[in-house]
């Protein structure tokens, strides 16, 4: 009944976003623009991790691992052929391949998703803290592999001088797609089966939810968007090293999900904006006062306060009312 009104609200928000992108691109300087790009990438990361951690309750710390896979795959595919041969020892077909950014990033996302499938099959038999530790192990394995696979990744040196392709016209549509997918899942039967696993996996299974398949799907969907974000990141920074996607980053994304409210898309969205802007605000402060790490300490302090005073996060599992039709409330 309110379906059409709902669609109008979303359409208006999307158009508003396009207007915003056009406006900032013509008014603000490069520095601010790059911050806004980062904010967008963080939104993709937080909203996609929310599908895994928030909806399905899989406490995964592996998101940066999937980003790294997506980032490296995309970077190698878009790297100019002329320079590839100087740095890397790739198989012939790969060495002669130079792809446009968009298909390359899709392939990056798909590779990350396939890796999630491979990792998920054994690891998702674990629960709770065990799963968190196992995904942490995965993150470290990815870093070690990248560091040691010299011929393809240039090891610890990383790949630099990547084409600076990422701009808001790439980031913004991916933000829209990520939010759309998360939203669509959350308010569907498929999403309800994910939420039921988070709430009580035994009861969910006794009601016919295929636990294993649904958990793997949640990890794979999250990983795809992490891979995309990795590609965007690499071509925004124009460099990628094994340490780009570290545990600290996993910590930041998890904080965004927890503070926003596990399961709330709007919450993850807003928390991603708050935290990525905060870090940027602290950066000049750190440099001027020569005290590095204030940003991290501040973030951790906010996390602790939220966990004590509002453990369900800013939004709980809910979305603000104006975005909902009557029957999804």
């Amino acid at each position: 009944m309110n379906q059409s009104r709902n669609r109008l609200v979303f359409l208006a928000l999307i158009l508003l976003g396009i207007g915003f992108v056009a406006l900032v691109r013509s008014t603000v300087n490069e520095y601010i623009l790059s911050i806004i790009n980062f904010v967008g990438i963080y939104i993709i990361l937080a909203v996609s991790l929310n599908i895994t951690n928030g909806f399905t309750g899989l406490f995964s710390l592996g998101h940066p691992g999937f980003m790294a896979i997506g980032g490296y795959v995309t970077a190698i595919l878009t790297f100019p052929v002329s320079r590839k041969s100087m740095f890397l020892e790739l198989p012939q077909w790969l060495a002669n391949l130079e792809m446009p950014f968009f298909p390359a990033s899709i392939i990056g996302g798909v590779c990350a998703a396939m890796m999630a499938l491979v990792v998920g099959l054994p690891v998702l038999r674990l629960r709770g803290h065990y799963l968190a530790v196992a995904t942490l192990g995965f993150l470290i394995i990815v870093q070690v592999l990248i560091t040691n696979w010299d011929s393809v990744t240039r090891g610890p040196l990383g790949l630099n001088g990547l084409p600076a392709i990422t701009n808001l016209w790439y980031v913004y549509p991916w933000v829209v797609v990520t939010v759309y997918v998360a939203w669509k899942i959350k308010f569907s039967s498929y999403g309800r089966s994910m939420l039921s696993i988070r709430e009580d996996d035994m009861a969910a299974q006794c009601l016919g939810v295929n636990l294993f398949r649904t958990r793997v799907a949640a990890l794979v969907i999250g990983a795809f968007f992490a891979g995309i974000a990795g590609g965007l990141w690499a071509h925004l920074v124009t460099a990628i090293t094994p340490t780009s996607f570290s545990l600290i980053l996993a910590f930041y994304i998890v904080v965004m999900v927890v503070v926003g409210g596990a399961g709330s898309i709007s919450g993850a969205f807003i928390a991603a904006i708050i935290f990525s802007v905060l870090t940027e605000i602290f950066r000049p402060l750190e440099e001027n006062l020569d005290v590095y790490g204030i940003g991290e300490i501040f973030t951790a302090a906010i996390l602790i306060l939220i966990l004590i005073y509002r453990p369900q996060g800013l939004f709980g599992s809910r979305e603000p009312g104006f975005l909902l039709t009557r029957d999804t409330q």
């Binding site: 039967s189 309800r192 939420l195 039921s196 709430e199 009861a203 969910a204 009601l207 016919g208």
Partner: peptide, 19 residues
Amino acid sequence: RIFKELSVIDNVKVAFHIR
């Protein structure tokens, strides 16, 4: 073992997923 955070109707809807 109900799904505590879900609404009553969503609790029931989860069960229809299989059918």
